[in-house]
């Protein structure tokens, strides 16, 4: 093989693992992309910031919905279904949850915002969805979410839906490999 061929070969052989790694790099890149664009209605934790608080907000209705993913027998629902709010102010809403089984279980709630272009303007300071919830048999809890919808919300949006899907993750406790979180922290 001549020298030029060897050089080409080495370049290509290096390119393959790089592209393989790029495939994995798409995971955090996608998260960043989601956070910036609100793609998929994903919501990330944000810092408290006075800039977001506005004197003059506009009225908005915030609708909460809850879904149990399959095999999740807990009772899980919003305490209030619709909250009339104003943009640029902090509110706290709660979801009630109850372990209706006779075993100790762990759950994780996954948030989603619709319409998706509202997601980037919904700021959560605290949310139960950032943590796992462990409940003893029959135990009940009230889970809070503290949030603000920024003034920059596109004006055609009059109604924002905040949905939580609750998943049973009892069986895959202890595994911290949830790829997204590693990179986000």
């Amino acid at each position: 093989m001549n020298k030029g061929a060897k050089k080409t070969l080495i370049k290509l052989v290096v390119a393959v693992p790089l592209m393989f790694a790029f495939g994995f790099a798409l995971v955090p890149l996608y998260d960043v992309f989601c956070e910036v664009t609100g793609l998929n209605g994903k919501v990330f934790q944000s810092e408290h910031s006075d800039d977001l608080i506005a004197e003059q907000g506009r009225p908005l209705s915030l609708q909460f919905i809850s879904t149990n993913n399959e095999n999740m027998p807990w009772k899980f629902e919003p305490s209030v279904k619709v909250l009339k709010i104003e943009t640029g102010k902090y509110y706290t809403a709660t979801f009630s949850v109850k372990n209706t089984t006779n075993k100790k279980m762990t759950a994780q709630a996954v948030p989603s915002v619709a319409p998706s272009n509202a997601a980037a303007h919904l700021k959560k300071l605290e949310c139960f969805c950032f943590e796992k919830q462990e409940l003893m048999p029959g135990e009940e809890a009230l889970l809070p979410v503290k949030l603000l919808v920024s003034n920059e919300l596109p004006s055609n949006i009059k109604n924002v839906i905040l949905s939580y899907t609750i998943f049973d993750i009892t069986d895959y406790n202890d595994i911290e490999l949830a790829s997204n979180q590693i990179v986000m922290e």
């Binding site: 998929n40 209605g41 919905i65 993913n69 996954v110 989603s112 915002v113 619709a114 319409p115 998706s116 839906i161 949905s163 899907t165 998943f167």
Partner: peptide, 9 residues
């Protein structure tokens, strides 16, 4: 599309 964990409108 109806996607588990996400809400589309």
């Amino acid at each position: 599309d109806a996607i588990p964990g996400f809400v589309n409108t």
